[in-house]
């Protein structure tokens, strides 16, 4: 039922991935992807509501 140490390893992988996620977010913001997200989100998305 248990494998001692597996939990600690998984948690460390989780922490590393969370840090990697933050770095990717930063890179995306640096590339200007946030502007695309903003432009899409402030106009009514016709596809999302089933009209476009």
């Amino acid at each position: 039922m248990s494998r001692p140490g597996l939990q600690g390893r998984s948690r460390r992988i989780g922490l590393l991935l969370a840090a990697a996620g933050l770095c990717l977010m930063g890179y995306g913001v640096f590339r200007g992807e946030m502007d695309i997200v903003f432009e899409k989100a402030v106009r009514i998305c016709m596809e999302c509501i089933g009209i476009g």
């Binding site: 996620g21 990717l24 913001v29 946030m34």
Partner: peptide, 13 residues
């Protein structure tokens, strides 16, 4: 999409 995929990885992890 690095910004959004990074966000999903961050929250998911």
């Amino acid at each position: 999409a690095f910004y959004v995929s990074g966000f999903l990885i961050f929250v998911g992890a």
